[in-house]
Design a protein around this nucleic acid. Structure first.
Lengths: 316, 316
DNA sequence: TGCGCAGATGCTCAGACGAGCAACATCACC
DNA sequence: GGTGATGTTGCTCGTCTGAGCATCTGCGCA
């Protein structure tokens, strides 16, 4: 009985969705009343046989966004669909686009935007339209300008974002991580650096990404850390870094000594910010994304479908 | 302009399909009239952004079936959906199920059903429900009973199909391929074999599968041919076999000498049959499926989505 | 055999929806 | 600046659809 009904609901669904016949017509074909057909279709939908996907680079997953808003402390969430995505790169590009869109629509428009740097943020800067805002000043919130192999990128990111909003960029003229604590204190005390850090700490909004803790990290790439150091950090529980600071799955600093040599705003500043937008995409960043959301490091998360599901705990 | 519209239609589609809001509500949210929303949704559907899949083992692809009926000489086509299929085995199982369903619903009910043998047909026999028909006699149309490693299978297929329809099975007591042409003539002349062949040639419907031309062929498995012979056949243009006879992509016999040693009904008998149902599934059988349909060897094709598309020429 | 119950089926009705048409803006060209 | 072609927007009307309610059917039980 139920078996025949299931088969019938499939036949009805085929005629309805593929052939787009009216329920009445389907009734005629299958020798049923149109009400029965309606019920069969409802049943097919309820049983999850009907899968509707929106295949488009700009498509979002509103239901997951809603669940994120409801089940976490996040004030907002943007989840891009991963339907039809071939590579992690494409996913990151989609997410960066979504972040750019979100930033463009953000109200109130931030006067000062604190940003980190990295591949993701750089991509966001490229996706922003010229004139996305008017008069937004951008300030870097963690060090890393020099000694980067791809030297200009970090600076370019800030400059591009600011330029496209007819604002000014303020760069943090300091390495990301120093070799000695003394040096870090000294450079922080320097007027030119201190001023930027103060400005960064008072930004009206933050936009940052996160790195996973492995040998592909941007900090390794840039020569601030060695692959061995990362292994050691992972041993201590590190899942990734936010603004250059390595945290464990609870969002706590993993290595206070290392953290003491890291230049940039404190994680507390992000936790207390009114608007802190984290942009995190890709299958390798599920754990760090979970840590960021779980420990209240951001108020807004821009991410991809799978990462969002990982954050929610419905592991794929 | 068109760009904004595209984005809008995606937003509308998200609200419509994911959040299932009414078009009017969407209009309010996006500050559009409900007619505009309706048009955007239609546009999204037309552009193919909306993908509706019916995820169920018994789901079919009616639109592809229609195209097959329209663009080929086929009188009927059954195409099972490959949505959510993990393996080729699952696809074959689905297709076999569909073939069983088709056979059950076939009108007029055939008095005599000519069948080939093989893994696919065996699976069809298992999927048939007891009492699928009343009094259908089954006759084997190609040799292969003995010397098969999985000896009983070919016989079991015929017996099962007949038994479940309260009919009798007539087996063809002959090898599939003989070593000498003389022997073949002799065995064909034998009364017990000749009677079965005559019966087979007058069957009211045929049900058969096809094998691809490679070392995994059932004929190699059964020891009738060696892997080297297959390579040689492929060199001559063979794409697969139907009822034990190797054909090229135009459906012509590849090796007349070999064919002269093959026991079973002629391909012409299939071409002239009123009802000849070919059951062909799996990615390795695209070429043979194309050959079967292209050369008019069947009137009905039961297959999977990808094979159907290959037959139609929209290569994936 | 008759009774009562639960689930299935069919009907009413209001609201959602799409096709087609009219009004209007936009643009190129005269 | 006028004029028509083209495309866009909003409206009317009749159809399609789903929720809620009445009715029926099958089945267990006395």
């Amino acid at each position: 009985m139920t078996d025949t009904d299931e088969l019938l609901s499939i036949r009805a669904a085929e005629l309805y969705y593929e052939e787009n016949k009216t329920q009445d017509e389907i009734g005629t074909v299958l020798r049923l009343t149109r009400w029965k057909v309606g019920r069969l279709l409802a049943q097919a939908k309820a049983s999850g046989f009907i899968r509707i996907e929106i295949v488009h680079p700009r498509a979002r997953r509103l239901s997951i966004e809603r669940r994120l808003r409801e089940n976490t402390h996040l004030t907002d969430a943007i989840v891009v669909s991963s339907a039809g995505v071939a590579s992690d790169e494409e996913l990151q590009s989609r997410t960066a686009q979504a972040a750019a869109d979100y930033l463009t629509g953000l109200r109130p428009v931030p006067r000062t935007l604190g940003i980190s740097w990295g591949r993701t943020l750089h991509e966001v800067s490229l996706h922003l339209a010229k004139g996305w805002a008017n008069g937004v000043n951008v300030v870097q919130i963690n060090g890393g300008v020099s000694l980067n192999r791809r030297a200009g990128t970090a600076a370019a990111t800030a400059v591009t974002i600011a330029h496209k909003a007819s604002g000014a960029a303020t760069l943090l003229p300091s390495p990301a991580i120093l070799e000695r604590h003394d040096t870090k204190l000294a450079i922080e005390a320097d007027r030119s650096v201190a001023a930027v850090l103060t400005l960064g700490a008072s930004a009206s909004a933050y936009l940052f990404s996160a790195g996973q803790a492995d040998r592909n990290s941007a900090l390794v790439d840039s020569g601030y850390l060695t692959a061995e150091q990362i292994v050691e950090l992972v041993r201590k529980g590190a899942v990734g870094d936010i603004v250059g600071r390595y945290v464990d799955s609870n969002g706590n600093i993993v290595d206070p000594e290392l953290d003491g040599r890291t230049v940039g705003i404190q994680l507390e500043a992000l936790r207390q910010a009114k608007t802190a937008i984290a942009v995190i995409a890709g299958s390798s960043k599920h754990s760090i994304a979970r840590a960021v959301v779980g420990s209240g490091l951001c108020t807004v998360l821009v991410t991809d479908e799978d990462t969002a599901l990982a954050v929610l705990g419905d592991d794929v």
